[in-house]
Amino acid sequence: MEGDLAHIGAGLAAIGSGAAAIGVGNVAGNYLAGALRNPSAAASQTATLFIGIAFAEALGIFAFLVSLLLMFAV
């Protein structure tokens, strides 16, 4: 088949989604740990939490995009 290498590349790129998952888990977990230590400060930091999650997740989305491009556009 013609597209074999591209498919392998797409699969490899999809590993990036798992890495992004680790990143997002890190952000959320640390937020939760901090929030349990100081619950009164938690509410003021939810915006920061979402920004952090968004930045971490964006890189996973990039990996996903690379995978999609390899699958459909190359």
Binding site: E57, A58, I61, F62, L65
Partner: peptide, 16 residues
């Protein structure tokens, strides 16, 4: 780039 691709990528990924 990240601002726009984050949105499109999330929605596209979910629907796919």
């Amino acid at each position: 780039v990240s601002h726009s691709i984050r949105l499109a990528g999330n929605i596209m990924a979910g629907h796919a």
